[in-house]
Design a protein around this nucleic acid. Structure first.
Lengths: 152, 152
DNA sequence: TTTCAGTTGTAAGATATTCTCAACTGTGAT
DNA sequence: ATCACAGTTGAGAATATCTTACAACTGAAA
């Protein structure tokens, strides 16, 4: 299995739901594949497309991001900077989750991997009769650089 | 020590920062004390105040919520429903963290307690030179009622 | 009581996101 | 190939949440 989603995965998932494979949807996914590790907002996507002269309507970008999230290709994350951001989901199920450490001062985001909460998911499913699909962990604090800057 | 914040705690924390104790700030905190366990948005607070005929300006509500967060009296949480929500912070330091289980279908939020991540905070502080202040964990899934509704 | 930094309310502004709708286009059926 | 149509797009209007500007007001220290 490839280590990330492909355009073909997109087509397959769209067909399962009577959705059409459009150039716009391909383009939006491609932006994420071309910018691994980034947490892109709708405006980020629009700006990147403007640079590469393949602009599409902003409303369509929003619609595509939502659709790609529903298809579990992208994951929506809020870092508290006033806009929703997205990143490509790990393809393999049961793979490492990666979580985010956010600097409350400068907004920098660092990622780290951990599986600590997998076992908790089972416990929660039993206790609350919830079908858990995903979880997000965020740590908030002050990054090294901002700490140093504050000392001067 | 009381098991939640009081108006007196607010006064003390405000004084530490050269901020004034105003009726509006008391009122906003009181709304949270009167509605334990709720995750209130700015508009929720405004509506509750309208009911009790003690309205204050919406901008002031926003400002108070932000200030109360800075004073660590309230905690800001985003559940993905398009607005920031707040809840009263646990008074005792090093107390149990409580996390949220969110139904992706109906938006219901259930809480549960856990300390699993305390040890991780130390590891992260060392590894990334981050000063961690807080963390949030969210589980996303489908609640019991929505699962049952989907089967019919 | 005086003084003034800090605060409030109103209205306007900024920003992110969703909606409306007419024109367009994949896709399955013929 | 072509047709038919459900689904999609783009543009702009609309909405929602939140922030800012500013003149009037007010706790609280002296």
């Amino acid at each position: 299995m490839a280590d990330t989603f492909t355009i073909h995965d997109l087509k397959r998932k769209l067909q399962e739901r009577q959705h059409k494979m459009t150039p716009q949807r391909q383009i939006v996914l491609q932006v994420f594949l071309d910018n691994p590790g980034e947490h892109l907002s709708a405006e980020d996507v629009r700006d990147l497309l403007k640079e590469s002269h393949s602009e599409i309507g902003l409303a369509t970008i929003y619609r595509s991001l939502e659709l790609l999230s529903e298809l579990s290709i992208l994951e929506k994350i809020e870092f508290g900077d006033g806009c929703a951001r997205y990143e490509v989901t790990n393809v393999q199920p049961n793979t490492h989750h990666h979580h985010h450490i956010i600097c409350e001062n400068c907004g920098k985001v660092i990622e780290f991997e951990d599986d600590l909460l997998e076992s908790l998911e089972d416990a929660i499913e039993k206790k609350f009769d919830f079908k858990i699909n995903n979880h997000q962990v965020k740590f908030f604090g002050i990054c090294k650089e901002c700490q140093e800057r504050a000392q001067n």
